[in-house]
Amino acid sequence: MEMLVDVFLLGLLVATAVAISSTKDLFASIMLTGLYSLISAAFFVLMDAVDVAFTEAAVGAGISTLLMLSCMKLTGQYEPKPHRHRRLLGLVVVSVTGVLLLFGTLDTPNFGDDHSPIQDHLAPHYLTKSMEEIGIPNVVTSVLASYRGFDTFGETVVILTAGIGVLALLGFSPKRQSDDLDSLVAPMHHQKILRVVSKLLIPPILLFALYVQFHGDFGPGGGFQAGVIFAAAIILYAMIFGVHVARQVFRDGAIRLLAALGVLIYGSVGLLSFLSGKNFLDYSVLSDTPQHGQHWGIMLVEMGVGITVAAVMLIIFFTFSARVDKRERDGDENQRQ
């Protein structure tokens, strides 16, 4: 039965990917990419990877689609036909690579095999020792924040770096933007029902983000998902009530500071254990018993991750939307002249 759903979902994924490849309309292919992410999230649930599914649904189907759309708005919707010779060449290259890779799969262990090499090296240790060493039921969180804490630190820094990169590429504006932002009408001004429903929904979404943040020890969740959900709530608000209103609360300086603050919290927890005579990010020194210390450490570290992820997502969204705003205003001025 499980296998049947597996075959079906993967088939849907292939169909969506083919559709993305063949459509000329960028808008359609971006929406299809969102669909593709949602189907793969369903597939991850089937594969028992609930945390991953959670993240993929929030990131891939939500924020990623939105960013692609704002980029499309800045660049145009249709694409030219690919050249004939390149299409043939591409097909040849892709088929040769594909056949070679297919040949490689013949040596892979069977799907679902519990004795394949990946299953008997580290995973048994995590699954059997995590409860006594870390003391939280969700093994994914304990591996993420404690066993492989250094790795996650690196990932958080990568996210911050990407945020800085986007700012460096698009954040400056040649003409300093004046404070006439209020003159822009909120884009969804005429949508009464949307406004009312989103007003009802945004507080529960923010609350849910906090729940995901702090419940990550016991169920699927954690800093990455919570950060994305929190940012999604703010982005929803910005889309319905106007970006400039949201930016009055989440000022540019503040979110830049928050993005760096998250990494700082993470790093300081590491340094604290370092200075107390243990290894970097060894949380056992943070409290009187090692297990208690692990709880504290994981909570602080996840908080750092959540703050950085939410702030960077907001930075990226605000930067893109400021470009769209500027483009539209310049367009208006050109029309007037």
Binding site: Q191, I193, L194, V197, L200, L201
Partner: peptide, 16 residues
């Protein structure tokens, strides 16, 4: 509750 709030709203926004 979430589905009953969001699904009609999105249909409405789409139609509009």
């Amino acid at each position: 509750k979430l589905i009953w709030l969001t699904s009609p709203t999105s249909s409405h926004a789409l139609a509009k």
